[in-house]
Amino acid sequence: MDELEVLKKDWNKQDQRFRKLSYGEIYKMILKKSSSIVKWIFIISLLEFVFWFVISFLLKGTSVSRKVEALEMDHILIPLSVVSYIILIYFFYLFYKNYRNISATDNAKSLMENILKTRRTVKYYVIFNLVALVIGTVIGTFYALRHSPEFTEKMAIATSQDDTFKIYAGTVIAIVIALAITILFLLVFYYLIYGLLLKRLNKNYRELKKLEV
């Protein structure tokens, strides 16, 4: 006899073995908060939006922003800020739309796809911020170097000693290392958070996809 048929016989007999929950106990349960992964993804994603948004505000009024102001970059900074806010709003709209589409009543595959889609939107937003960080640093450095009296002085000395290449190479290497460390730190952080949170979902999604091959 098929093993599952043996189990099927027992399966429907087991009802009386479960502890029956009363009306009151079930009622108490529906008042409790969910701790599903969707809720956690929503919270973490919101924190990410807030994090990048707050960073731009925190920089205002600091010595860094005063230095940036001194560089007279408004003709670049203002259009860039406008574009980045529009992109932020667009990302947030996408994120919210995807989040609303997540429904526990969908079939298992669609549910997983919708969760992964929401997660992907946030991932693109993070990539956008990282790219903006790199571009911002490159433009900022270029302007800072052109306006820095110290650097101009150094360059004058370097030119007289034929050391221009060394100075440029040193500056570029320092920036690349600083950016690499920042990006690596953020990537490890994201990998840990989402990697752990979505490990099981990804595994199950792969399993369902495998069935289609």
């Binding site: 992964i37 009543t105 079939n107 298992a108 549910l111 099981r200 199950n204």
Partner: peptide, 17 residues
């Protein structure tokens, strides 16, 4: 039938072990 779907979705996808 509706419970099967939500129940399994929670067990497979939504529930954090």
């Amino acid at each position: 039938t509706w419970m099967y779907r939500v129940g399994l979705n929670t067990a497979i996808t939504l529930y954090r072990k």
